[in-house]
Design a protein around this nucleic acid. Structure first.
Lengths: 224, 224
DNA sequence: TGGTACTTACAGATCGTTCAGTAAGAGAGT
DNA sequence: ACTCTCTTACTGAACGATCTGTAAGTACCA
């Protein structure tokens, strides 16, 4: 039924940190591209919160003027929409992968958890922004709506794994799902790629703790 | 002058939703008390974010004027400080309880987890505000500092339980702790007291999933 | 010459906060 | 019972700063 998640609209944009001055491109003056503006904006949004971040701060960080930004985007909210689309495109893409659509439910669940962690790390600032939304404007509400649909797809996966006998039944299904999401989503609050913990190891750890908890394990077969 | 308001520490204040008109208290006019103003303010802060919430919105919700609020508090930041103090007082109180200080580490850990969930629910709006801080102002940074000290105390408990052999060692201690906190803290994003799930049951579920994960359990003795 | 990427200048609104003034009850004095 | 004074709890206007967004002009390059 409802799982019709929109496919990735376009290829993830390369975020170039430096303005391409003068010659290499094709055009006029300093030439910040949209991706740069967006990357700086999202970083600032995550530091101060979207509404508390002024276009003046963005301009300062870009080394340009407030109004120059309006050459690249039509509004502040436009920046937000662009950023949220990117996060959501990435997450929804996971659900379309073969590993998420074929095979036993518990294996599909493992695949989605692992890939969700990976996308979350790849698109860290964008997903961070998404996860901190309040839903005050229409843009925010529609992003939250897409996020809810994603969550719901994962919930159905957990339900399937439960029917299959792979998930505990002494805790309510909704509670299980929410606690699981809480654990995964918290990654944006502390994980920074490039440190001692690799993304791959992080994904392993998340799956291990999510499935088996923090207690010391007895004999446990890898299949369940 | 009115600076020395300092939240009545541990005793949870009654939040009266209605202004006490006329006679019972002292004198004057409508007489909103600090607790009412604070409750309304925190609710608004959680909905729109602290910085995005204007004094005008608070005044509107209180049915009064912006300037009237300044009779009760010295500044907008003062409201924030009061709210954060309340959340932190509650959480820190848990660490002082006998159940958190005496006995085997794994039992103390269980106690702290359960009580942390309970305080989190009791003081839901205040803790919610705390958990969404960015650390931009001095008030926010000092609150985050207190929160880090609380987290660190729990981390030490987990370490003790690990030394005792109750916690898995195949996942890094720091990662374990952060995933655990992520799970617990996420409660503020979805749990609302008064529903089908009681606070006590929620605490049970959190402990069950935190310790043993979402997988179907084999034989597992309640002690570990 | 024409498009690109701006800059300067500003409109209009809203922000947190201050301040002078005031309505109304409480207590004291008579 | 009556006034007088003091305290409480505001009201309403105004302040300077800052906010998003726009309009018009301009430097640069092909």
């Amino acid at each position: 039924m409802s799982g019709e998640v929109h496919a990735a609209h376009h290829v993830p944009q390369k975020v170039t940190q430096t303005p391409r001055r003068g010659g290499n491109g094709r055009t006029g003056r300093d030439a910040y591209d949209l991706a740069t503006v967006l990357a700086i904006a999202v970083a600032a949004f995550n530091e101060h919160g979207y509404e508390a971040t002024s276009m003046g701060i963005l301009a300062e960080r870009l080394g340009t003027s407030r109004s120059a930004i309006y050459y690249h985007v039509t509004s502040k909210e436009d920046l937000l929409r662009l950023a949220l689309d990117r996060a959501l495109d990435g997450l929804e893409g996971v659900l379309l992968e073969p590993g998420a659509t074929v095979g036993p439910a518990d294996q599909r669940l493992r695949h989605v958890l692992r890939r969700a962690v990976e996308v979350l790390v790849e698109e860290l600032p964008f997903v961070t922004l998404l996860l901190r939304l309040r839903g005050n404007t229409e843009v925010e509400r529609s992003a939250l709506d897409r996020r809810r649909r994603f969550d719901h797809a994962v919930t159905k996966l957990i339900d399937a794994a439960r029917d299959q006998g792979a998930v505990r039944t002494d805790v309510d299904a909704g509670t299980t799902t929410r606690l699981l999401f809480g654990m995964i989503n918290s990654i944006v609050d502390w994980y920074r790629p490039g440190g001692a913990l690799s993304t791959s190891q992080l994904a392993d750890d998340v799956i291990a703790v999510a499935l088996s908890g923090i207690s010391r394990q007895e004999i446990r077969r890898p299949g369940a």
